[in-house]
């Protein structure tokens, strides 16, 4: 069925949150993506200040405050549309959630970074090239924790951990700039409609996010051990 505005009968763009003709909020439609909310293509190199302006503009049209005197039905739609808008903005404005979201739309199962069903924290797979560093780091972390239990402090060990922390933080920053390069690659492949190139960029992003998650957990563990 082609959608029409419930109020003025004008034709609606698919998934449009409000009618361009009369400005009234519309019932939310299923399967609207966060990119659709902003009328954006599924591309990753976003200008966040443009996104912010669009968010403010849409908020002014959809927010429940604007519908406080409207019918109950419109109030409910405004609530649902605004929550979708807010969820979309929150996801798209930050680099990592945006990338993860796009990958999910592309059918990739992203590891949830929270407690899983069985209550244990899922550990990300260790990137093979980090094997040696991680092995040594784990030894140091263990020693640090033992020291703390005994109430001792080993300045040498502390220094080593600080150094490891700086190194891994450097890797995080590096992975962020690598990610941006992959965005450009993905976006170009989307524009060129080059499926092979898209698949390649996608796989590289998945690998990069896996590694990034792993390194971030390391930084978190070191911070915990250092009592930061």
């Amino acid at each position: 069925m082609s959608a029409a505005c419930w109020s003025c009968g004008s034709a609606l763009a698919a998934g449009a949150p409000f009618c361009v003709a009369c400005g009234k909020v519309q019932a939310p439609t299923a399967d609207v993506t966060y990119f659709d909310v902003f009328g954006l293509p599924r591309k990753l190199a976003l200008d966040t200040s443009t996104l912010e302006r669009a968010f403010y503009k849409l908020s002014r049209k959809l927010h429940p405050d604007v519908y406080a005197r409207a019918s109950e039905r419109e109030q409910q739609w405004s609530l649902e549309q605004t929550s979708l808008l807010n969820d979309a903005y929150r996801t798209l404005k930050n680099a990592i959630p945006r990338t993860e979201y796009l990958l999910k739309l592309e059918g990739v199962e992203i590891e949830q970074d929270r407690a899983s069903e069985n209550g244990a924290k899922k550990e990300s797979r260790m990137p093979p090239d980090l094997l040696e560093e991680v092995f040594e780091l784990n030894m140091q972390l263990e020693e640090m924790r033992m020291n703390q239990k005994m109430g001792e402090d080993d300045p040498q060990l502390r220094g080593d951990l600080e150094k490891a922390k700086t190194q891994f933080e450097g890797q995080l920053a590096e992975s962020d700039s690598d990610l941006q390069k992959l965005w450009v690659k993905w976006d170009a492949a989307v524009d060129a409609d080059d499926e092979a190139s898209q698949a390649d960029a996608k796989n590289k992003m998945v690998a990069l996010l896996d590694r990034r998650r792993y390194v971030r957990n390391l930084v978190r563990d070191v911070n915990e051990a250092l009592g930061a």
Binding site: P64, S83, L84, N86, D87, R90
Partner: peptide, 8 residues
């Protein structure tokens, strides 16, 4: 600190 309305 998620902007409300928010959903999951």
């Amino acid at each position: 600190n998620s902007t409300i309305p928010a959903s999951a």
